[in-house]
Design a protein around this nucleic acid. Sequence first.
RNA 1: GGAGAGGUGGCUGAGUGGCUGAAAGCGACGGUUUGCUAAACCGUUGUAGGGACAAAAUCCCUACCCCGGGUUCGAAUCCCGGCCUCUCCGCCA
Length: 425
Amino acid sequence: MLDINFIRNNPDKVKQAIVLKHENAASIDQLLEVDAQRRSLIHTCEQLKNKRNEKSREVSELKKKGQDASIIIEETKKIGDEIKSYEEKIVGLESQINNLMLRIPNIPAADVPIGKDENDNVVVKSWGVRKTFDFTPLPHWELGSLLNILDLERSSKISGSGFILLKGLGAKLERALFSFMLDLHTSEHGYTELFPPFLVNRASMTGTGQLPKLEEDMYRTAVDDLFLIPTAEVPVTNIHRDEILSYKDLPLYYTAYTPCFRREAGSYGKDTRGIIRVHQFNKVELVKITKPETSYNELESLLGNAEKILQLLGLEYRVSKLCTGDMSFAAAKCYDIEIWAPGLGKYLEVSSCSNFEDFQARRINIRFRDENGKLRFVHTMNGSGLALPRTVIAFLETYQQKDGSVVIPNVLQSYMGGIKVIACK
RNA sequence: GGAGAGGUGGCUGAGUGGCUGAAAGCGACGGUUUGCUAAACCGUUGUAGGGACAAAAUCCCUACCCCGGGUUCGAAUCCCGGCCUCUCCGCCA
């Protein structure tokens, strides 16, 4: 959510930003109009309330003296009715304003490239050397069945397409990878490990921005109106909802492993083979809550923390700065990390590291008291560190050998119980 | 699931219809005193919205005692609904 005051004072800037993000700028004029109406009604209504309070005080005085107050009481009754009708109107306007505000996207940071879609993203870094094979590398789904570690036929029997059944060393590899990630982030990068709920309420989903826009993409439990989390970002960022932190508490670094649930509505037919796009996947998430002054430095180091995983695993990747048109609704600036999958012959996104500035903090109401005792909104940011299935894809495809077996690099061997190779059965 | 108790400011805790935005204490901040620390004493100590002002400082108003309704001239206080916490019982990994 943006600051309504900022919108009032800079309507053109906001409209421009909205256009860059492919949203509808007409809502701004509507918003400003409703906002003006609201303010004028509030003004009148509060004057009436003031009058009522005065009259009530008079009643109290008269009654203390034992005098009759019935005339004033009659008058005040009428004022009360008037107030009620104003209040109803105001409530209506406020819900309109709120609805509009929740649908206005964040404004891109100044150094974000202007562009239409993913083709206008700017690659800012490439890491690793493209591995060459003296055979044709297989895609992960073929390796998966060859090694008997991935069974997509049975998982679709159990749940449907878009679900994964890992078996044996495949399951162990999954566990090894997220354990490795968590250990690195906690012991080397200073994050506090969390294990949050996987079902969250509507307020939490609204706070981080999944609602109201993306409800179709979420799994929801009808009876209790709870949502399966699409990312750990939701429970973790909401930890401090409606709280006032001290500047001494900041920055906060949190990391959490959780499964993530996404309906992927509207992406049918895309990436259907293998485990590139699935409804349930594991992810280690990085979340930071910082002071505004440091947030862009913190974003860079968060990105570095995610990259470190790939560097240690020896997987080739590149980093792009997303252009205005490709950035998510809530982001002010965003980097994508894409990992090279030799079997697929393409890059796969494994992490989006975004700074939301105070956009989420405003929705979610996380403030801090700064060195001067002033209340200000914090900045929030997050990124995957990393998403598992695609890491597994690149891992299997990169470390495959001619016979289909997969070599486990040194860093991961202890997590795999000393196993050095996932061999064919 | 059944039966009770309760949710008040940063915290503890008083307040059952009328200057109560809210006693008292603690904490925090500022000051006096002091060689330093401590102690003592004095003072300050919420947030949001709206308005006045060119703007800031400032001032005025309104709202907020878990949330939402209701009763009333007037609600922290009474009534109804919801959420949450605690205790006991039952069930259960």
